Simulated scan of single mutants.
Amino acid sequence: MTSHGTALRFGYGTNGLADLRLDDALALLADLGYDGVGLTLDHMHLDPLAPDLAARAARVARRLAALGLDVTVETGARYVLDPRHKHGPSLLDPDPQARARRVDLLLRAVRVAADLGAHAVHCFSGTAPAGDDADTAWQRLAASLTPVLEAAATAGIPLAVEPEPGHLLATLADFHHLRRLLGDPPALGLTLDLGHCQCLEPLPPADCVRAAAPWLRHVQIEDMRRGVHDHLPFGEGEIDFPPLLAALAATGYQGLTVVELPRHSHAGPHHARTSLPFLRRAAAAAAANVPTTAASGAGHPAAAAPHAAAPVAAGAATTGPATAASATTAPEGSTP
């Protein structure tokens, strides 16, 4: 604990270590000094659809305990349910049976999270099907999440929904729209990807953190540029990290802040090795109030991003979901 708030605890996402066996990935992160892991349930890492899930989860739990790693369960695997359609089927699929498959995956994730002693279960909405009106999509999302939230409440583990560029639920304003639709259930929390704040939110990233603080249950981090949804290694984007991490520490957030570089698995061990020193330098600079240009960490001056939209208060009354994501560009295939 410092005068600036809670000491941040850093993890690394297994979706950025997809070429490693899970046990090897966990050992690497422990050896590098990470506090925990964002565990994406996928065919190569604790397959949620293979037999004997509870027994396999128990073995992973023992391994995490032996290595001293905390964990958040993530559910953003690209093809775990459908080998031909990325992130399919979603919670918004017009086919009720297809939606039920995604709901079942999230229910399995809640059970795994309980077995692992995880801090939260992460999920996202998916993209709205072509031709669907917004009200129909939002009602489908709320109905699909209801049994998952009930299971999460019973397990005592928050369900942390992530605003994802290009998805129905793309922004913090969209998260509050869902929260109101569901009647503000206690089990509903927020996954805040700090790069996404840089990408498309009207508030600067540090202000996003402050606005989101009451609902924060999981945090993801990487570098990013304004208007481009491309997860970048630290120092290759525009984010000014020391003030951002200072804002996060000041909220008292006690969960993991997980590096998310899913498109960099080909060099995952390298990025895992370089990311933690970068984050520790930025956090130390934040705590010491060092000027941000002295803590960019990779030879790249920290650059402030332009923010054309006027700031709005999180949770402020809105007449409907936000549409900021519609203006966001992304390299083909860049969405995690």
Rank of each mutant, 00 (worst) to 15 (best):
H45Q: 12
G38M: 02
A30D: 07
T40S: 09
N15T: 13
G36K: 03
P51F: 10
R62N: 13
D23G: 11
V37K: 00
L53P: 05
L22G: 02
D47K: 07
G38V: 00
V37W: 01
G33I: 13
L53K: 05
D19P: 06
G11E: 00
F10W: 14
A50D: 14
H43I: 13
R56S: 01
V60K: 01
R59F: 10
G5C: 04
Y12Q: 05
V60L: 05
L22K: 05
D31R: 15
A30V: 13
L49W: 14
G11N: 00
D24A: 15
H45K: 07
M44N: 14
L39G: 02
L41Q: 01
R59C: 10
N15K: 06
L32Q: 07
L20Q: 09
D35I: 10
A27K: 02
H43A: 15
A18R: 11
F10I: 11
L32A: 01
L22C: 02
L8W: 01
M44W: 14
R56K: 13
L29Y: 00
D47F: 14
L53N: 05
H43N: 09
D52V: 01
F10L: 08
Y12L: 05
A54I: 06
L53M: 08
P48Y: 03
P51Q: 14
D31W: 12
A50Y: 13
T14W: 05
N15F: 08
R56G: 00
P51T: 10
P48T: 05
R56N: 02
A58F: 09
V37G: 01
V37Y: 01
L41D: 03
D31M: 08
G5V: 00
L49I: 07
A55T: 10
G13L: 01
L39K: 03
L49H: 14
L22A: 03
L26C: 05
D42K: 11
G33L: 13
D19E: 14
A50V: 10
L29D: 04
T14N: 07
A61G: 15
L22T: 02
A58Y: 08
A50F: 11
R59G: 08
L28R: 01
V37M: 04
N15D: 15
D35N: 07
R9K: 13
G11W: 03
A7E: 11
L49M: 12
L39I: 04
Y12S: 05
L22Q: 06
G36H: 04
D52T: 07
